[in-house]
């Protein structure tokens, strides 16, 4: 199993999107402190408030910015592309067949691919944490909410596990990189629509049944809320164990689904 993980890690880090993604992580990590300093020095006014008041100048602030920018879209897209390539892509170009001719059970191959994806994700997070941290300290000194921010980075990795799991599930179900990317896009849009619907229901305006309103207000098992898990430990948010639970349910459920599908799959 260790060698399978090694093989998948080496292969993943040789892929172009993986390298671009890590470059992007460094760029985001460096960009955010620079932007923040620039905004503060220029005395920019945002929504009628001076930037200096808007963003307290503390070294962990750029790291929070970088994490937010990362979670917004691009890095998740790279993670999805890598997940699609490593499973659907390898079914399509027949290299998974060559791998499965080895005397290894299929579940181990799937787990090795997941571990490789998460390794890449963790390396990206660490790079961003270090780059934005060093620049933040350089600009603003050493004070700050370091524990919360570090925790936010760790929780982001947890949330990304759910995203990676869902990507692998869609990849083995569709067996096509394009269909995986499209499927994930549709899933994220549907998820967003479901989120709005739940928000509307949770106001009690549509359905008055208190039981339904209560469930809707908790946003159970929604990918978009799971992806924001890292934010929930930052100031201004309330940490919610239910979102953490949702991440766990999504990760475990999608992986189980992917395992069952892969076990029975005919590999061309």
């Amino acid at each position: 199993m260790t060698l399978l993980v090694l093989a998948e890690q080496v292969k993943l880090f040789r892929r172009t999107p993986a390298r671009l993604g890590l470059g992007l992580a460094v760029m985001l990590g460096a960009l955010m402190p620079i932007v923040l300093v620039a905004l503060l020095q220029a005395g920019t006014v945002i929504f009628g408030v001076e930037a200096a008041q808007h963003f307290a100048s503390e070294p962990t602030r750029p790291m929070i910015w970088a994490l937010r920018a990362r979670n917004f879209f691009v890095m998740h897209a790279v993670l999805i592309v890598l997940g699609a390539q490593t499973l659907a892509g390898e079914i399509g170009d027949r290299t998974l067949r060559e791998a499965l001719l080895a005397p290894v059970p299929r579940y181990q191959v799937l787990l090795a691919k997941l571990v490789a994806l998460l390794t890449w994700d963790a390396v990206g997070l660490v790079l961003m944490f270090v780059v934005s941290g060093v620049l933040g300290i350089g600009a603003f000194g050493l004070d700050g909410i370091w524990v919360s921010v570090a925790l936010a980075y760790v929780l982001t990795l947890v949330a990304d596990t759910a995203l990676a799991g869902i990507t692998l599930l869609v990849a083995v179900a569709t067996r096509s990189v394009v269909a995986t990317l499209g499927g994930l896009l549709v899933a994220l849009i549907l998820d967003m629509v479901a989120g709005w619907a739940m928000f509307v229901v949770s106001t009690g305006a549509v359905v008055r049944d208190p039981w339904v309103v209560e469930i809707a207000s908790q946003h159970p098992v929604l990918l978009n809320s799971v992806l924001g898990l890292g934010n929930s430990v930052l100031p201004g948010y309330a940490f919610d164990t239910r979102t953490l639970g949702s991440a766990g349910v999504l990760a475990a459920g999608s992986l189980l689904g992917a395992l069952l599908l892969l076990r029975r799959a005919d590999i061309p």
């Binding site: 060698l3 399978l4 090694l6 093989a7 080496v10 292969k11 040789r14 892929r15 172009t16 170009d93 027949r94 290299t95 067949r97 060559e98 791998a99 080895a102 005397p103 290894v104």
Partner: peptide, 19 residues
């Protein structure tokens, strides 16, 4: 089939690790 973006040696490494 091979991972065509890798060298022959790297492909053999992959197969070796799997084996």
């Amino acid at each position: 089939a091979f991972h065509d973006w890798m060298t022959a040696r790297q492909n053999l490494m992959q197969a070796g690790w799997y084996g």
